[in-house]
Design a protein around this nucleic acid. Structure first.
Lengths: 219, 219
DNA sequence: ATATTGCCGTTGTTTTTCCAACTTATTCAG
DNA sequence: CTGAATAAGTTGGAAAAACAACGGCAATAT
């Protein structure tokens, strides 16, 4: 694990933890290193998962398979990123996805039970860690909620309007740069690219927006 | 506040906090009570919000307005429930919604900064509270992620298949009771009710599923 | 300068979904 | 039991979105 310590320290999970506190904290969190061969499963849907997985080498795939066997890659977790935090914080709830090594991979398992359900004092380092975790989950929550609002809009136009509205709100002005190309934006809003292009054109013609390439403004 | 103490204690935020620890914890969290008249705004999109709001009387609406002024009620928070937790855990990120009193309302503001960014020890009560918060956010996260998967499916049939798959997985068997009526299920999956009925029929005819009323089974 | 490539807009066609209206089934009250 | 009310299934036409194919444009390579 020692050769990966700098990567661990750089993870947002451990942000703000004093250098000297990191190793004791890792012990406290019962951190264990695991090595996996490409294609090996880290856990399956239905397993109780009580740790956060942090990828140190390689990458893993989060996978879901439906009742009829259709398999779906939900996300790829690269080196430096983590997964399973929602399951780890809900020990009574089993995993709802499979996780498989997309390449030979090294991860650490971070057991959070101690800092969550202890009923005892938390050291400053533990408090910092839980605070970090809370912030990360809050941020994920915010992103999910926002995206959900786009997806539940009934028409493509409404999805676009809400999305552009929020971009303008975030930037604080009605003119801004789109952070996606068209294909990425279409994927994000879960619509067809050409349909997106067409709808943007219509909205321009209708006087709702103006744009040129990735320069947008709301009217 | 005293007359509402039993409601506060019953909130999942304070689950597991020893009775004697509640009042000191509330002080610690700088809890303040506020009264609002119907229609009054608790905060606006763009405001920095550093507290969790817990509704003690009445109810509040979470509202979003887009750039062109279209207003949208995202959710209603009734007595006993809370809101704003994601903003409170991300002090640098301003609110992205408005909150307005749907009726005359009483709420308390729970300031979490102390237990999040202190860099100091946490008492058992504080630790319990942050643990609760983490669990609640994890659960919300899980639900959002799962729903998102349904919504990003391209066809109605795929939405249904994934949703039913997950129900069967949760129950542990291929036969189960649907927790929604058709209209609710359609709303949840963001599709038209009659289209949902029609697609269910087709799926039955195609031998994928069988059902009668809310009794479903996967084949 | 020319070819290649990737991104974006446009258009016509096909497919899917929505929508409205109606039928059938079920529940519940009197 | 009867009738009203609610929920679910069915159908046909309208609207929207997806899909496929193509052309323009700009950046980059040859």
């Amino acid at each position: 694990m020692e050769q990966h310590l700098s990567l661990i320290e750089k993870s947002p999970l451990f942000r703000g933890v004093a250098k000297d506190d990191v190793l004791p904290l890792l012990q406290d969190l019962k951190v264990r290193q695991k090595n996996y061969k490409k294609g090996e499963f880290l856990f399956y849907s239905g397993d109780p998962v009580t740790y956060i997985g942090l990828v140190l080498e390689g990458s893993v795939h989060i996978i879901q398979e439906d009742y009829w066997g259709n398999r779906n890659i939900l996300s790829q977790i690269p080196k430096g990123f983590f997964f399973g935090e929602a399951f780890a914080c809900l020990p009574e709830a089993p995993a709802t996805v499979d996780v498989v090594a997309a390449s030979d991979a090294v991860i650490i398992q971070i057991y959070v039970a101690n800092v969550l359900h202890g009923g005892h004092l938390l050291t400053p380092a533990e408090a910092q860690f839980t605070g970090n975790l809370l912030g990360l989950m809050a941020e994920k929550n915010r992103l999910l909620t926002e995206k959900m609002r786009y997806l539940t809009q009934r028409s493509t136009r409404q999805k676009i309007m809400l999305y552009l509205s929020n971009l303008a709100r975030d930037k604080g002005k009605s003119a801004f740069v789109l952070p996606f190309n068209r294909q990425q934006m279409a994927d994000f809003l879960s619509v067809d690219r050409s349909a997106l292009s067409a709808e943007l054109s219509k909205m321009k013609k209708d006087g709702l927006i103006d744009y040129h390439k990735d320069q947008f403004s709301l009217l």
